[in-house]
Design a protein around this nucleic acid. Sequence first.
DNA 1: ATGAAAGCGCTAACAT
DNA 2: ATGTTAGCGCTTTCAT
Lengths: 341, 341
Amino acid sequence: MSAPDAPDRTKHKTHAKVVNIKDVAARANVSVGTVSRVLANNETVGTALREKVTEAIRELNFRPSGVARGLRRSRTDMIGLVIPDITNPFFAELAKHVEAIASRSGFSVLLSITNEDPRIELNQIESLLKSYPTGLIVVPTQFGASEGWKSNVATVAVDRRFAGYPLISVDHAAGAGLAARHLLALGHRRIAYIAGPPEAPVSRERRNGFVDALAAEGVTPEILEGYFDYASGETLGRMLLDRAPGERPTAIATASDQQAIGLMRAANDLDLKVPQDISVVGFDDIPLAELITPRLTTIRQPVEQIAARAVALTTGTSPLPIDDELLEASLVVRNSTAARD
Amino acid sequence: MSAPDAPDRTKHKTHAKVVNIKDVAARANVSVGTVSRVLANNETVGTALREKVTEAIRELNFRPSGVARGLRRSRTDMIGLVIPDITNPFFAELAKHVEAIASRSGFSVLLSITNEDPRIELNQIESLLKSYPTGLIVVPTQFGASEGWKSNVATVAVDRRFAGYPLISVDHAAGAGLAARHLLALGHRRIAYIAGPPEAPVSRERRNGFVDALAAEGVTPEILEGYFDYASGETLGRMLLDRAPGERPTAIATASDQQAIGLMRAANDLDLKVPQDISVVGFDDIPLAELITPRLTTIRQPVEQIAARAVALTTGTSPLPIDDELLEASLVVRNSTAARD
DNA sequence: ATGAAAGCGCTAACAT
DNA sequence: ATGTTAGCGCTTTCAT
C-alpha cells in the first residue's frame, strides 16, 4: 500500500545507478576500506572477510571505477601511444606489441595518430595528458620541432628522437651497415641506395651507416632521396633501372621495405628480374616482406623488444634511463638478393 | 649553463603539484564555478571575468583534469575501439579514421586488440569499461559467442555482428555481387571463389552474394574455403591454378584483398599472367591493392563512412539506431581483370 | 585486522 | 551573472 516509487530526491541522479564500492561494502557487511584492500590484494585482510567481499563483488557484478581510482591517485592505468601513421605496417606492428604487453600489465592504451603533423602531435599530447596516463610512448613526427610541453608523465621516444626524452630505437646505422656488407659479400660493387627524406634524422642515420660500410671497401653508392613509401620506391627505382645494363646498379638497398617493394614493382615493369638482374635489400622486415615475390631480403627491426622496453619504462616497471637504448638489427636473407654474375 | 627547459627526468616525484581549477580561480579572483563555466564555454559568463580567467589559465598553464571531470559526470571523453588485429590493413584504416573523427569531436580513443580471441575480447571490454568511455566500437572476433556484458555505454558493432548491438557494415553480399557481375560482363564463365572461413558470417555473406549473382546467369563457381590472409590465398590459389589450361578457372574472386594478393603470387610462381591467363578480383580495397603489379581490381569498402557513422553513434552525436546500417560497396576496376579471350 | 573519514579536481544544483 | 557547496567513487592515513 505504500508508495513504492516515491520521487527520487537525491541530488545528482542524472545517470543510471552503477554498483560502487559502498554497495559492495554494505552487501558484505564490511567497511569500504576493507573492500578497497581486497581489490588491492592487500595481505592484511582476514580470510573470512576477504571471502565475503569477493562473494559480494561477484554477486553484484561490481566493476571498480578506474576513473575514481585515477582521480584519487592522480594517475590512471593507461599509457598514451602517439604514432604518425597506423597504416604504416611498422607502426601497426609496434602498436600491436605495445598494446599486448601493456594490457598484460593491466594498462590500457590511449591511441593518438598525428599524421606526421607537428601541430596535431602537440594537440594530441595535450589532450592525452588530461587523462593522467602513467606514461607516454611517442613516435614523433619526422620534421617537427617537437615543442616542449612538460608534465610529470614518464615519457620515451621510439624510433625517432624527441626533445630531450630517452630514445628507444633500433641502431639504424648499424642495421644499414649489415645491408651494405651483405651486398659487398655477394660481390656487388655498382650499388645504389634509395634513402628517405634528408631532413629526417632516421633517414640520415641509415644512409650514413650504409655509406660508411661501403666506404670501408672503397665503394661509393649512387644515392637517391625520397620518402619512405611505396610510391617513392617505385619512382626512384625506375630512375635507377631504366638505363643500359652497364649503366645501372647491380644492387639497390632502400631505407624501408615499402620502398623496396615499390622498387621491385618498377623492376617488374621494366622486365628486370629480381634477383637475377638486380639485387634488392629492404629495411624493417614488415610482414609483407616475406609474402611478396620474390621474398624480400631485409634488415629486421626488433619491434617486439622495442615495444617491451618502451612499455616497461613508461609503466614504471623499469626506472627511466638517462641514456638512449639502441637495439640491434639483424639481417634476414631471403630471395631478393643474389651473387653478382 | 644548463638547458632552460630540458624535460624533467627525475625519478618519480612523490607528489608534483599540479595546477587545478582552484588555483586558477584564486589567480583570477573568481570562484571555481566561474572557471568551470569558462571551460565549458558557458555563455552566461561576463566578458571581463571570462578574460581574466582565460588569462589565468594561460599564465598557470592549467590543464583541466579529464579524470575529475569524468568522475563527476560518470563518463569520460573517450571511446573504446576493439579490433581483432591492427596489422590487418583494413582494420588499420578503420582505426585511423575512427581516431581522426573522434579526436575532431574532442574524444580520445582507447585501443584494444583481441587477436581474434573471444576470451581476450571479453577481458578487454571489461577493462575498457572501467574508464567510463562514452561509447564502444567493437569489431568482434570471428568465431566468438560474444557473451553478454552489460553497461550503459553506447555500443555499436562494426563489420561483424555482435550480440544484439546495432551493426555498421558494408553490404557484404551486394559487394560480392558486384564482383560477380563484373566477371560475368567480361565474358567469364569458368569462375572460382576463394572464401573465408565458413563459420564466419561475413565470409558466408560474401560467398552467398557472389554465388547468387552468378546463379542469376546460370553459372556455378568452384568454391574453396580458407582464411582471409595472404597465405590462404596463395595455397588455395595454387590448388586452383596448378592444372591444365582447360581445367582451371579463367577468373577467380576472393573474399579479401590479401587472399587476392596471395593468389597473384601463386599465379606468378606458376608462370601464369594476370590478367591474360587469369582474372582476379579482391575485396576491401586496402592501400596495397593499387600498389602491386598488376593493380588489383577489387570491391571497395567505404571505410571512412563506416568510421564516421560508428563514431557519431557512439559519441552521442547521432541517436543510437535500432536497426543495422548497411553501407554500399563499390567496384574499383584496375588491371587484374580482363575480358576472356 | 578493520573502520572512519578526509580528500583527489571537477560539475551542477542551488543561492544570491 | 556569479558564488557556494555537495558529491562522483575511490585510496589512504589515522584511529581503534
